[in-house]
Design a protein around this nucleic acid. Structure first.
Lengths: 204, 204, 204, 204
DNA sequence: CATGAATGAGATTTCATTCAT
DNA sequence: GATGAATGAAATCTCATTCAT
């Protein structure tokens, strides 16, 4: 008579393992850089055998993809939390200020890993899943909708797309470059004007 | 009486060879992607032996670096041509329209190569030479200076830096994405408003 | 009741493998000479893949070094066995006769390999480990000490050093040269007089 | 009407060239070590083209062989000069003292080159020419003959052979090891006792 | 004869992946 | 399922030698 057959044994063990492996991958990546990262090293760092690693990931690309996916998901979580609290009661300015803060915070989740993923990575064949992309998109678009009246941009989809690119570029400029130099300090306060400027620019 | 028939052997032959090799590199890169590009293939595609390739480039990285450098230099040439004709007589709007056109044109020099270079590359290991960067920077800054009066951004250096990032991100969005999708057609006309919006945004 | 059937997997397998590889290295070296020896050939001759070879030796030099070390260790073993039996009860003459016999025997362990190792090698890059050297030195010095009284050489360390060089040179002369020629037969009996002559030479 | 067609044009030019090349080879060898020496480098250092180098030497081995040969010949010249002055009027002791001095001097002709040639060299297929060997042999044997009466060694050929090996080993021990350490200072004065001891050892 | 660019076989080493235990 | 030794294709780079100019 078995009571409480533990809980979700297979799945759970699997999840934990997957995370252990991704943690190891992240660690090795950060410690040695992409060029010197290899599956054996990752397995070792995860405290398992390569064979086991291949039980959870069919190949190296899947591993990379999963790590990126997890990283972006974590960023998304942080970002959506903030975005959810934007109720349109605030001004366009204050709402986007919050959004940008959230995005910057999101980019600081695992900054070194983020840098590797952004800079050192052959993005070959490994696009971020469309679902994640879509949710980032939706979060931004949601805020835009709440301020439809104050925005001059004709098409909200296009505006969202443009904003997404702008924000990513500017935030990476702030986050990726080492401390010192032109960027970090002085670029940060320019992001909001750029966003608001674009959204409220007079259109002919 | 012979007019300089001499010949310019060394330099000339070398230049031609270097270009032949870079052309081959570009071809292979575009055809097979970075991951499947190797020096033997490049040499073969250039119609020379690996040995010869290594007579002109000390190693694979130097080859990639040189290709990027050549590509960016070509883009810069196109861009500077246009930028040079902007004399400040036009409006901020029309001048930046011209600048954006030039930049888009520059990004269409070798679009597939450009895509590989932008997307598949360990940017980290292969920074574009600072001279090229600086000249792009100067060209943009030059236009800003001519319109200093109509711009609300306090620091022109920072503004240039921000613009550079914004422009690169948006133009890539236009240029890099395959046909179809949101981008190309609809994003293009948004670049100018984004730029002008940022530069003329009211500051508190 | 099973008596320690356990198994000694890692170490044991590793040892065997290392020996298999060194055997193969030795074989290839003897068959083709150093210049024509390469890791692929060694792996093939060992009946393993190159990859496996590199699991046991980090690079080609380590392989050569290990082979030399093993060879010299085997020679040392043979030599020490004999040297251990020299108790000083015999005459200087008879003791060194035994020592020389032991040394010659030691040099005949794997004569062809020995020849390659002695003649074809960048000795400079591959010094024999100092421990081995020291033990050869000690064995000789031990015998000298037992006959301190009959030896005219003032410094035993120097004498040992000189003897080591002399013995190596003369024994190699006997062992290394192909059959026929002056050496083998007629040089052998000269080694003892040379040694004894040196040790007992009247000093001014 | 041509007078004085220069003198020995072909030969002379050839000789000079050969020496220039060997000098370059020696220089490169000493500067970079055997492993990093290659024909292109040698040609460059000689101030000629590789093509020209191959006009004078059919292949790399011939180059190495010639260099060794030249080096050994120079050593021989120095050595024979001294040996020629030994007229048997002196004692066995003093004559061999002179001989050893000459040999040491000979080994110091181009010490770094000598070291490379002795230690860093795969001697594969490249024995010193028998003529040179023979002349070294004859020089030593000549001295022995002059002291036939005071020597106990039965066969002079064998004695010469043995002496040659002993001397080479001991002198290299003195010459090759860097300053400091056991060797240089203290081994040098042991060479003569070793030689005399061998030659005058009482025989049963 | 001289030149030196071109050659290309070949050597070392890496690492994603498999599979017998 | 886990293990990790074994695999071997593949990649980078070197250098003795040739030969068209």
């Amino acid at each position: 008579m078995k009571l409480q057959p533990r809980k979700e044994p297979r799945q759970a063990r699997s999840r934990a393992m997957v995370d252990t492996i991704l943690d190891a991958m992240s660690r090795v990546l950060v410690e040695r850089g992409y060029a010197k990262t290899n599956t054996n090293l990752v397995a070792e760092s995860a405290g398992i055998s390569v064979g086991s690693l291949y039980q959870y990931f069919p190949n190296k690309d899947a591993l990379i993809f999963a790590l990126r996916e997890r990283h972006v998901t974590r960023m998304l979580a942080l970002f959506e939390d903030v975005a959810a609290h934007i109720d349109g009661a605030g001004s366009l300015n204050s709402d986007f200020e919050a959004l940008i803060d959230a995005l910057v915070a999101a980019h600081l989740v695992e900054p070194e890993l983020n840098r590797i993923l952004e800079e050192e990575f052959p993005a070959y064949n490994l696009p971020v899943s469309t679902e994640i992309r879509q949710r980032f998109f939706d979060a931004i678009r949601g805020v835009l909708e709440k301020h439809r009246g104050s925005i001059t941009t004709p098409d909200l989809d296009v505006a969202t797309f443009v904003l997404q690119r702008m924000l990513k570029a500017l935030i990476n400029a702030v986050v990726l470059t080492g401390p010192g130099g032109l960027s970090a300090g002085s670029v940060r306060p320019e992001i909001l004007p750029a966003v608001i400027g674009y959204l409220t620019a007079p259109r002919s």
